[in-house]
């Protein structure tokens, strides 16, 4: 069936871009703050629901409601950092403990969204256009999703490589003690990292909300795929999350050509397991300093 192959590749790219969007913020926090922040999935859910609330329920202009949801999501991730993660860092908790607390935050946020908005699925109906290229079709929102994953890739690259903040993040990631010696305040840089992760997470939340349905637990499967993407791409490299996301998306879509579509998660987890066992540094293969 060669005729459906182009469409499958496009679908894989769309799924992969969604994973890459989810993975980017997750991966940045892991790179700088050194723990797996599953609450990134909560930010995605919160942003999507806020966009739904402002745009579809209250009828505010969509650009303004996007801006409002991004700002509130940033406040949400900063308060998570201030209330939970900072206190855990103060008592020198291990990264596993911080990860468990982020899981608890994820569950908390989904339950909160469930209590406020109810368990029924919601859709954001926005003007959408379908482009037919003969061998494949793609909608405007899907094109925006693919483009924004490329754009975020470039943005992260610029921030990390070309700015003073990026330099501070990289030095903090390489060696925290040495970074502190030369006058970098970790808490301040962590705050910036969470702000950037909040922006990435809320933009992906809005885009995912436009492409898929909204339901209170939507952040859980998305952030799980985001975390698989960042591990497969290379957890010690922020760009790896984008590469990994696209890779996982393509393999999943090509895999369900042969397997029932319900086995998508099994495919991605088998890849995760294979990478963890045989190539734990991921596709980009950045070595990790062993500090355990």
């Amino acid at each position: 069936m060669p005729s459906i192959l182009p469409q499958l590749i496009i679908n894989g790219l769309i799924a992969g871009s969604i994973y890459a969007l989810a993975a980017s913020g997750f991966s940045l926090v892991y790179y700088v703050v050194k723990f797996m922040n599953f609450a990134q999935g909560a930010i995605i859910t919160i942003a999507a629901y806020l966009f739904f609330l402002f745009g579809s329920v209250l009828g505010i202009n969509y650009a303004l409601s996007a801006l409002l949801s991004i700002i509130i999501s940033i406040l949400a991730i900063l308060s998570m950092n201030l209330i939970v993660y900072e206190n855990l860092r103060k008592r020198k908790a291990t990264n596993v403990v911080t990860m468990i607390s982020s899981l608890a935050l994820l569950i908390f946020s989904s339950a909160l969204v469930l209590a406020i908005f109810g368990s029924s699925t919601k859709t954001i109906s926005l003007y959408n256009k379908t482009f037919d290229f003969g061998i494949f079709t793609v909608t405007l929102i899907q094109l925006i999703i693919i483009c924004s994953s490329v754009f975020l890739f470039l943005l992260l690259w610029v921030v990390l490589k070309k700015t003073r903040l990026g330099k501070a993040m990289r030095s903090l990631s390489d060696n925290k003690e040495a970074a502190q010696v030369i006058g970098i305040n970790p808490e301040k840089i962590y705050t910036y990292a969470f702000i950037i992760a909040g922006i990435l997470g809320s933009i992906s939340g809005i885009l995912i909300g436009l492409e898929q349905n909204l339901y209170p637990r939507m952040g859980v499967p998305i952030i799980i795929k985001g975390f698989i993407s960042s591990v497969v791409g290379g957890i010690n490299s922020v760009y790896g999350s984008i590469v990994g996301g696209l890779f996982i998306g393509l393999v999943e879509i090509l895999g369900i050509w042969f397997l029932p579509s319900g086995y998508r998660d099994v495919i991605s987890f088998s890849i995760l397991l294979l990478f963890l066992l045989f190539k734990p540094n991921g596709i980009l293969g950045v070595k990790k300093r062993d500090d355990s």
Binding site: I100, A104, I107, A111
Partner: peptide, 13 residues
């Protein structure tokens, strides 16, 4: 779920 999540976080901290 919210109560359990909060209890877990409080204990961890």
């Amino acid at each position: 779920e919210m109560v359990f999540a909060v209890v877990l976080i409080l204990i961890l901290i």
